Computed example of a mutant assay.
Amino acid sequence: MLTKKQLDLLEFIHTRVQRDGVPPSFDEMKEALDLRSKSGIHRLITALEERGFIRRLAHKARALEIVKLPDAIGGGGFQPRVIDGDMADDADPGRSEPRPETIESTAPAVPLLGRIAAGGPISAIADVQQNIAVPPAMVAGSGNHYALEVRGDSMINAGINDGDVVVIREGRVADNGEIVVAAFHDQNEYSVTLKRFRRKGSSVALEAANPDYETRVLPADQVEIQGKLVGLIRTY
């Protein structure tokens, strides 16, 4: 039998995996359960594992598998879904180069083109010849897709953390409120950033999702939309 907190955490993990294709971070779990520290989440995860509801897979960079669900969450007919971390156990999470990905034969792959700023703008994206495996739902529909590694925390309140990999559908247009890859000139340097898009008359606002960062307002003809966010992959 699960405690209320254990049940709440299991339901939260299950919902996020079904919605996003990736489990939530420990910070997101802590916030969702209104706990003061991540140590409480560690204890709940351990309890769920001991009771056979989840499994942390060895040599998979803390991959998380939901093994079963109680009837309260709709456990009938449940099939486990595994979300693998993408770093080897001995990888350095602070390294500066984009991480190579393991491509599974059954998973679609998109090119990982480098890093994108979620903070101040960075120079234009470099073409890095790597591929990254993604859940099929992220690349469903028409259009080309690519992936970028996020640098910075300006989109943290939109659930995008430093080190996440975002999956982008190529395109030149966006609706207000969508998160986009936007290119523009910043002090005579061609720069690229990940921000929320707002058109305001003849101007475009590139909004951060962090109050520590100001909204950047530019003439619309100086902003080039290069694609919009369709998915996110997080490692642990």
Rank of each mutant, 00 (worst) to 15 (best):
L2P: 02
L7R: 06
L10D: 11
E11Y: 06
E11V: 10
H14M: 06
V17M: 15
Q18M: 08
P24M: 15
S25E: 05
S25N: 09
F26G: 07
K30C: 07
E31C: 12
L33M: 09
S39V: 14
H42K: 10
R43F: 02
F53T: 01
I54N: 13
L57C: 04
K60N: 05
L64A: 14
V67D: 06
I73C: 08
R81P: 12
V82Q: 07
D84Y: 15
D90F: 00
P93M: 01
P98M: 03
I103G: 02
S105M: 03
A109E: 05
R115K: 13
I116A: 05
G120Y: 14
V128C: 04
V128K: 12
V128M: 05
P136R: 08
M138D: 10
A140K: 13
G143K: 06
N144G: 13
Y146C: 13
V150I: 15
S154C: 15
I160Y: 15
D164R: 14
V166W: 12
G171P: 15
R172N: 12
D175T: 04
N176V: 01
G177T: 06
F184K: 05
N188G: 03
T193G: 12
R196Q: 14
R198M: 04
R198H: 09
R199N: 01
G201C: 00
S202A: 04
L206Q: 05
A208P: 15
P219H: 01
A220E: 03
A220M: 01
D221I: 00
V223Y: 03
E224G: 07
Q226T: 07
G227E: 15
L229R: 05
L229T: 15
G231V: 12
L232N: 12
